[in-house]
Design a protein around this nucleic acid. Structure first.
Lengths: 327, 327
DNA sequence: TTGTAAGCGTTATCAG
DNA sequence: CTGATAACGCTTACAA
């Protein structure tokens, strides 16, 4: 039978209050008593019952990470960095993978907010904040990461890609490319919307009419990158902007299959959420998201919010970096 | 203020016991009372306090996943599949990333077993079970995955690669390749040891003496794959066996850099822990690990162990598949 | 410098 | 079929 605080108290000949205070360092205890208590703890191999403690204190030292696709290296990278940062602050990480599914996300939020977690970091699959708000108790510590549902006001960390996308597309135009295709990601996401706008604005400012045939709606998976690229090649593009790394993988796979060489036969600009494999490095132009940085900041932010609920909401916006030579 | 069970009981005009039983379906409740209770629950937007419940029951419905490197796609894949499987059974996943660090692994185990988790799935970085045994309370549900520390007896799920590695190397030999290099992974791991043996045995059975200059000790990271490949090329290999996907990425990167074409200038056989990117597919021979399958089985196994502690220990061994044409 | 005792919100054991 | 009520193990006023 696992030892409890009363056993320690009995053995050390003190009250349970004293034992508790020795453990938590929460009030002065004489050297002598402390030693007796510590000895008893060792002798009994005692460790506090975490469930009892969190029941009593209301804190579980657990943070939830609600991600749309853990299989996507971008979100896996964020996961890793969050875990790392949280462990520094004495928190552990509970992972919920929603697979871009509304119901799974809501179920996850319900669960996490029902007493499982002290706070949540979420990359929501919802477009509007009102759709998840009912499942986030008021004042529950939440940090939105990467994506920002419309109408949300509060803590968030994300990367603003509008300017970088616009500049990259403008750059293509300046070099004489005019038939510039675009493979978009899931349209309801704020991150997608921003990239849409960057693409459109660049064309607009150059006086190039938007050709709907060159805009492909992808679904953020590799397969759709492949399919969209195929259609764009058939439509005769000489350059393309791709909205995320996963689809870029698929798209480049297609280019490779039909012998088109990037940088020579076609220009490719892609968002880069994570490191690329070899081969892909040379000629592809990339807009790199500081994923780790984002994750670290988000983790710090939840912890701060938990430990100081009065803090005003903070919106952190990072900038991506454009690599014309590839990475 | 969040509603509690007493509020519901009061509103429905029943005892808290009845409310509890309605919620948990743990004893018969008349239709009438049930409806009253359910109505009150909705009206008050009540949900049970999970902390109180787990304090009382001693169950937290949380499983720990202790992985050596979440950044490695292999372990990320396993993570994803574990999460998926566990959620089916009503469990959530707590992730601890040890980064192949002894201290982090021990700290993680201490934490998880101290009341955080009901069970643990672990790919240990330790060679011997005796080193972690002190941190795993007797009868604590544990499933070892992928790696099997020496001396461990109990639940485990892994892939046996000895036969496949031996066959693949023998195949190279049969085709006339004799200078076959080997890039090994972290030597203390059971998974590495098995592959070592497969490689050695194949040479042995063909009567080829082992040339130490052709055996490189890697560290499971991409960089070391690159460096080891360089040395092997300098040593004049015409084929190579690589012990994991991550190092294979680095190794192939080197081959690419110096213009050596796989399948023509050099044969490459590699363990394949996860999907490859394009380009790498064609000529590389792979030994594919059923990572997802392994993860699913491990998750099911912890749950079974938790729900039926009497169950005899079960060791599950899966077989990899050899793809001579690549994937 | 330390002890006493009141809860925290459930579940589960009795009784009825 | 339902209700009282005693735990569960800890933290934290309040007392001394």
């Amino acid at each position: 039978m696992k030892a409890k605080i009363t056993d320690v108290a009995k053995m050390a000949g003190v009250s349970i209050a004293t034992v508790s205070h020795v453990i938590n360092g929460t009030r002065y205890v004489s050297d002598n008593t402390r030693k007796k208590v510590e000895k008893a703890i060792r002798a009994l191999d005692y460790s506090p019952n975490i469930s009892a403690r969190s029941f009593k204190t209301g804190r579980r030292n657990l943070i939830g990470y609600v991600a749309p696709d853990i299989g996507n290296r971008f979100f896996a990278l964020i996961l890793e960095e969050i875990e790392d940062t949280l462990s520094l602050h004495g928190y552990n990480l509970v992972v919920v993978n929603t697979r871009e599914d509304y119901d799974r996300e809501i179920a996850g939020l319900k669960l996490l907010t029902s007493g499982i977690a002290d706070g949540i970091i979420i990359a929501s699959t919802f477009q509007n904040y009102t759709e998840i708000q009912p499942y986030l108790p008021e004042d529950f510590p939440v940090v939105q990461i990467d994506r920002l549902p419309a109408g949300y006001v509060g803590d968030s960390v994300r990367v603003s890609t509008f300017a970088a996308v616009k500049a990259a597309v403008a750059d293509l135009i300046a070099e004489g490319y005019t038939r510039i295709g675009y493979i978009a990601s899931i349209s309801r996401l704020s991150s997608t919307v921003e990239r849409d706008q960057g693409y459109r604005r660049a064309l607009e400012e150059a006086g190039i009419p938007l050709d709907p045939a060159l805009v492909m709606q992808g679904d953020a998976r590799s397969r759709s990158g492949y399919d969209c690229m195929k259609k764009l090649v058939d439509a005769g593009v000489n350059a393309v902007f791709i909205s995320n790394s996963v689809m870029a993988g698929g798209a480049m796979s297609y280019l490779d299959n039909c012998g088109l060489q990037i940088g020579r036969d076609i220009q490719v600009v892609s968002m880069r959420d994570y490191e690329w494999h070899r081969f892909q490095k040379e000629a592809v132009r990339t807009i790199e998201q500081p994923a780790k940085e984002m994750a670290r900041l988000a983790a710090q932010q939840v912890v701060e919010r938990i430990e100081n609920p009065q803090l005003p909401g903070r919106e952190t916006i990072l900038r991506p970096t454009y690599h014309k030579a590839g990475a």
